[in-house]
């Protein structure tokens, strides 16, 4: 084993296969991977609160979806689209609900202009935000992350062409481009909206990944791998991408916050998912005409949006710092 091999193995903290005896006479103790609980304990209080909020949003969204799709509204969460004062064919009568009702045990956050339960709509609205954030992050991390890592590693004409294409997409004002694309597709399903936003997320991820890849590609262990004749694709997948990924993932949290706001803007303009599907943006839009009568109906979805975006930014920042710290240890 050459000295270079030893160095490569010792700094590759993600490589679990290296036997201890290969480290020479003074084996380096491998850092143990922290458990989620340990990571949580490590967090400052503000990040802990943010994480708890994100888990609540995530859990609520999943719960609401399971309730609607699998259990036919059997769980104790009201139908988000049920107008409690409208005609009910089952009873043959109009419901006794009230529009713009204040909070009560029946409606924890009150009702909206057409007597729908606001809490149920916020929980169901989280699903849209969640899907949009996850799809855009998925697209960004997989497609943007891969292209960024690739062009940062191989450089040359591939990099020039790819980054030029990304710059072209980035040059369009995102919201205007979104409006145009949503208008072209016309069908405003969650899938279409998520895919459009996901597509538009790719350039930002590509830039982040490329920046990381450029730095990682000049590191000693990558140079060493090249020197011993390792195939470029193997270096890319074994050395570059694993080291770029933490940065891209932590960026995904911050970018997720951004796309949730973008979706909120689209909803506010009436261009997001089909009504009557609840989203935080369309809840705000529909309640704004009633601001003087029922401020709470604008307030609650706004708070859900603000807290989620704030939490994603906080956790994303913290993860970025953590990733940077780990990177500097390489």
């Amino acid at each position: 084993m050459t000295a270079l091999d030893a160095q490569t193995d010792s700094i590759s903290i993600t490589d679990d296969d290296a036997p201890a005896e290969r480290q020479g006479s003074t084996p380096i103790e491998r850092p143990k991977r922290a458990t989620p609980l340990q990571v949580f304990r490590e967090m400052p209080i503000v990040i802990k609160l943010s994480t708890i909020w994100l888990l609540l949003v995530f859990g609520g969204a999943i719960y609401a979806k399971i309730d609607t799709v699998l259990l036919n509204d059997a769980l104790p969460l009201q139908n988000p689209n049920l107008q409690t004062n409208n005609f009910n064919p089952a009873t043959g009568e109009f419901g006794d609900g009230e529009p713009n009702e204040s909070w009560s045990s029946a409606h924890w956050l009150g009702t909206d202009t057409i007597a729908r339960d606001t809490f149920a709509r916020i929980v169901h609205g989280a699903w849209v935000s969640l899907i949009i954030a996850m799809v855009s992050a998925g697209f960004g991390v997989v497609v943007g992350g891969f292209f960024g890592s690739l062009v940062g590693f191989v450089r040359g004409r591939t990099e020039t062409v790819t980054m030029a294409a990304m710059d072209v997409i980035l040059a369009f004002p995102a919201l205007i481009l979104l409006l145009a694309m949503v208008s072209i597709f016309e069908v405003r399903s969650l899938t279409v909206i998520a895919l459009v936003i996901g597509f538009l997320s790719i350039p930002a991820y590509t830039r982040v990944a490329r920046a990381g890849s450029l730095a990682v590609s000049q590191r000693e262990f990558v140079l060493a791998a090249r020197a011993i004749g390792t195939k470029p694709m193997k270096i890319l997948f074994r050395e570059v991408i694993p080291n770029v990924l933490p940065t891209v993932l932590s960026y995904a949290m911050v970018a997720g916050a951004f796309v949730i706001v973008v979706e909120g803007s689209l909803s506010f303009l009436g261009l997001s998912v089909q009504l009557p599907t609840a989203t935080w943006g369309n809840m705000i839009n529909q309640a704004r005409g009633n601001l003087k009568v029922n401020f709470a109906q604008v307030f609650w979805p706004s708070m859900a949006l603000v807290l989620t975006v704030l939490s994603l930014n906080s956790v994303g920042d913290w993860l970025q710092k953590r990733a940077a710290h780990r990177g500097s240890a390489l």
Partner: peptide, 12 residues
Amino acid sequence: PSLIAAMQVLEQ
């Protein structure tokens, strides 16, 4: 917003 609310009443 008020027309959006009204159309959802019809829709339901």
